[in-house]
Every structure is written in structure tokens, then in C-alpha cells.
Design a protein around this nucleic acid. Structure first.
Lengths: 129, 129
DNA sequence: CGGTATCCCGTAGGATACTG
DNA sequence: CAGTATCCTACGGGATACCG
């Protein structure tokens, strides 16, 4: 690696780089939350729906399917009645989630920090006298 | 911290959590690239526009402005002619970028890996016979 | 050089209803 | 329980033109 952190080449900066699409999916609004929700172990559909507050069935389905196709999430459906389906992270899914967690943790800390010392609205750089 | 990685409480999962908005900005399509582009030092408008291939002026402006308001990016405009404006990361911006870099690096590696061993299209789980 | 303003479009995303 | 189907809206994002 050349510098701190070590981007291989910085290929993401080229428009046609395939990692752009992958990055988009992983960092999508619900994608992040789905991956992080699964980091502690397998979860069922209804569990995800409850845990990730605000997600619609449509978006949960779409997100899970694209992750499944991408090889980040495994879908395990048992043909029983009533249906029992579990979603879990694949090894690749675990890799990316490990890198996602610190980011999410930071946003929580930063949001908390900002709220704590004054709640100055970020809309304007400084308060108008 | 309770568990590996350490999400404080997992507040992101509540719909009203302020970190959701912040997370959205930071993980936005161009947000990621802007932050990572700035990680090696200050850059000028035109430099960013060239380096981040595919970004429009509109989106670059919007992204930089929201980061500036969020306190992640500093805008330094020198009143000379022709205009000279430099963008750089604030300490907070550096913090989040440090957590972003491993993620971006992973997507590059993963995309490269996928391309290397067969380029099986992720659209369908298996090839149709 | 470093932006804004305007128009336009695609898709992420939401609400609701229905099904195996 | 675990989804799909349908309809609809909002906004991210692109192209182009123009301004200090």
C-alpha cells in the first residue's frame, strides 16, 4: 500500500469502474442497515422488518434480493408451514459489514456530539446576529 | 462497548435517528468520492471535477455545500483573479473519511476479485441453461 | 476559474392491497 | 409468515446555458 488506508489504485474515480455499482448498493439507504442488522447473526424477514424501522416491504425485498445476487447475503428458506426464512451474511457480506460498522458508529457518535453541544443548525455556518 | 465493533445503542435502526440523515449524506453516490478524493490534501474545484469522473457541476456543488454545512469540509476562497478556491477536510471530515476508505478499498478488491474468477453476472444466481 | 439557474428524467422509495 | 403487484411521489442526478 502506498498511503494510509491504501486504496489500490483509486479506480473508483473512473466513471466505468465496476466498484461504483457495488459501492452504491452497499451504501444505499437500506443496504447499510440490512447488513448491519445481520451482523449479529441470522434474522428472519419479519425480524428485519421490525428492527429496521421505516423500511417498506418493497425496499426490504429489493435490498435483500440484490445482496443475495451479489453474494453478500444468504437466503435460507425452510419449506414448512407457516414459512420460515432466514437471512444471514456470507463471508463476503461479513467482510463488507465489518468495514461498514465503524462508519455507522461514527455517524451515531457525531450526531450525538452535535446534538449535545448546542444543536447549532448546520444549515447556516454561523448564527446570524 | 458491548459487542464487536461497538455500535453504541443501534440507534440507527430507529426511524427518527438523526444519524440516518448524516449517514445518507456521507454514503451518497458522490459524497463518498468527494471525501475520499480530499483525503490526500486540499483540492480545487476544477481538480475535484476532473478527478471524480462523471460528476456534474451541479452535484459537486451540492455535495460540497452540504458537507461544508455539516462541518466535514472547509472551503477556502482567495479573492484573487482568476478565483482560487480550495476544499479540504476538517478534523471531523478526516475522521469519517478514515472509516470510509476501507469500505471503498473493499469494493474495489471485491469487484476486481469477481471480475477475475469468471465474471458470473450477479443479476441471476446461476447461468440459465 | 468557480460556480448558479433551469429544465428534465429515471429510479429510489413509500402506501396499500393481495397471495402462496 | 413471507413475500409480490401496483400505483404514485419525491428527489437524486444529468445536460445545458449563463454569470461574477
Amino acid at each position: 500500500m502506498s498511503i494510509a488506508g491504501g486504496l489500490p489504485q483509486g479506480e473508483v474515480f473512473s466513471a466505468d469502474c465496476p466498484s461504483r455499482r457495488l459501492l452504491g448498493e452497499v451504501t444505499s439507504k437500506w443496504g447499510v442497515l440490512v447488513l448491519v442488522a445481520l451482523k449479529d447473526g441470522p434474522m428472519r424477514w419479519s425480524g428485519l422488518l421490525r428492527r429496521i424501522q421505516g423500511v417498506s416491504e418493497k425496499m426490504l425485498a429489493r435490498t435483500l434480493r440484490s445482496f443475495e445476487a451479489e453474494g453478500l447475503v444468504l437466503r435460507d428458506a425452510r419449506p414448512v408451514v407457516p414459512p420460515h426464512v432466514e437471512y444471514s451474511l456470507t463471508p463476503a457480506g461479513r467482510e463488507v459489514t465489518e468495514r461498514l460498522v465503524p462508519l455507522v458508529a461514527w455517524t451515531e457518535e457525531h450526531a450525538a456530539r452535535a446534538a449535545a453541544h448546542g444543536e447549532r443548525s448546520p444549515a447556516g455556518s454561523g448564527p446570524r446576529p
